[in-house]
Amino acid sequence: MLEAQGLSFSIAGFSLLRDIDLRVEPGKVTAIIGPNGAGKTSLLRLLTGEQRPTAGNIALSGQPLGDWSPTQLASVMAVLPQSSRLDFPFTAREVVMMGRIPHATGLVRDTAIVDAALAAVDGSYLDKRFYTHMSGGEKQRVQLARVLAQIWEPVADHARVLILDEPTSSFDLAHQQLTIANMRSFAAQGVGVLVVIHDLNMAARCADQLLVLSCGRIAACGSPQQVLTAMTIKQVFNVDVSIGINPLTGTPLVIA
């Protein structure tokens, strides 16, 4: 389990995050929503160990994040940043194979995992194609397959964590659904999934727990039913909405 307590973060005296408590529980999908500039990406940078919080603690499986060696951490925590630039003509297979760098499972096992990860994002046909020649959505799928491959199987029963920053921003409807299915299936294996997402209805569909960030603070936290109310959305996004029920999934449906 990834657990943060009392996180605060400021840069040059400017406070970006204040008093954040957060638990990414194994087997659950936690989604962070909030307006632009609310501190969502900053929060991810703290939780992945890329930046140190000004105050507060982060622990993974009970051990402070700073005590994990880089390779150890990489073998159980995979992070997909918002956008990745890669100007070199690697094939999709080579990019996904990089996800196996933290592991020493051998080429045969790694190849099987890369095949499965590419298939999971509907990218098997991209296998030998060059990354530099792909569309935006295809690139994003290959990057997603790379992070899935990174934590494809458990390492010595350690809890695994998957962190995704807006993974569906350039996906069509079918691939959005596929990504939700992937997050759910990783959660079903006991992986703790944390995702930053802009589309409130997507968040309602994929998450067990929603966390609303506003101006660097937690404005609301709980199940989608508890959090996605007309009042909260008015407070945080300053938009009038009405809330219905998605007839297919039974989750809240935000109608703006």
Partner: peptide, 8 residues
């Protein structure tokens, strides 16, 4: 940062 997340 991607490299860092791969343990480099």
């Amino acid at each position: 940062s991607e490299a860092r997340h791969l343990g480099i």
